[in-house]
Design a protein around this nucleic acid. Structure first.
Lengths: 180, 180
DNA sequence: GTCTATATCCTGATAGAC
DNA sequence: GTCTATCAGGATATAGAC
């Protein structure tokens, strides 16, 4: 646990990168091995099957999510705004692993679907704690998920539309929060 | 155009069904042919490649979308509410083809991504015509897209969460519309 | 721990009979 | 228009050398 083999981390990182950048179809074991700088056999020593590769990714995501939930709970702006704001971010550890698992889930990988449902429940619970109006909380969740939906789109879509406008969007979230 | 071969429609219908129900990976040409009750060779007479199969699906979607835009424009409740309300529906022609093309897009199929972007623009334009506040319109679009995101999830997720609660969600949309 | 070589399977596509 | 072979390519996974 304290000193995992370097190669193993490098392989998982390459796999996640390929999932995010090139889609699930491109993230084959051969391509992952090549990107990580090892051979197919070398990869299979650390991850004996493709399923174990996916499993390792999910575990990383759940760890990152646990840390994020604490940040979300203690965010000065409140959990709801924190959630929507971070829904547009790309590059962080959580975002990388989330997108990777999202790709797996969209490809029909059941364990990934379950993991995303679990994370979804964690977010919703924290937002509902802040926003007492149940339906306002759900609307805010949907806005964040709409942003994730765009992020998950291949190609140019993920980058566009928002960015500098995020502050204006957060004002809409404020309006939903303050039930008026 | 007026009398397309029955088998061709049956094949495309089987393909769309498999995309929606079992994901892009399961929608192979062999499985599609089997579901449509023809052989692989029979399928390839009507669709000479898998790409043409996807293309036919996109064309059907664009046709259904065109019809839907007219309904959206003349909806008594207004385009925004119409958009959010129909974002949860499953079973209609538009929803079936939309989900099918969404699956293709999520699999990295570029023409499908372009088609969804085009449809997205059509919806956004109509909502912005009703909701003058640009950012409120974008927030409403995101709610609808969040609903699509959930619909696109394989497994049980697509059915849950909303349904009877849709009316409450529409009240949140009303609040965003009436910029107060 | 890492590599090469190979086995097995599946998918999209072709050729040609009926 | 529809079928039965059949092929070429790619993917996961195994076996065994170093």
């Amino acid at each position: 646990m304290s000193r995992p083999p370097l190669a193993k981390e490098k392989i998982l990182d390459a796999y996640v990168s390929m999932l995010c950048d090139d889609g699930e179809r491109a993230a084959t074991m051969e391509a992952t091995a090549a990107k990580a700088g090892v051979s197919k056999g070398g990869l299979l020593y650390h991850f004996a099957s493709k399923e174990l590769l996916a499993q390792g990714t999910i575990e990383h995501l759940l760890t990152a999510h646990e840390e994020d939930l604490e940040l979300m709970g203690s965010a000065p702006e409140g959990p709801a705004s924190y959630f929507v704001r971070t829904s547009t971010s790309v590059g962080g550890d959580l975002d990388r692993y989330f997108l990777a698992v999202l790709r797996l889930a969209q490809g029909g990988h059941e364990p990934s679907v379950k993991a995303l449902e679990y994370i979804h429940e964690g977010w919703l619970g924290m937002i509902q704690h802040e926003v007492t109006d149940k339906y306002a909380a759900e609307a805010i969740m949907l806005i964040g998920e709409g942003l994730y939906y765009q992020t998950s789109m291949p190609g140019t879509w993920s980058t566009g539309t928002f960015g500098k406008d995020l502050n204006h969007l957060l004002k809409q979230v404020e309006r939903l929060k303050n039930g008026n």
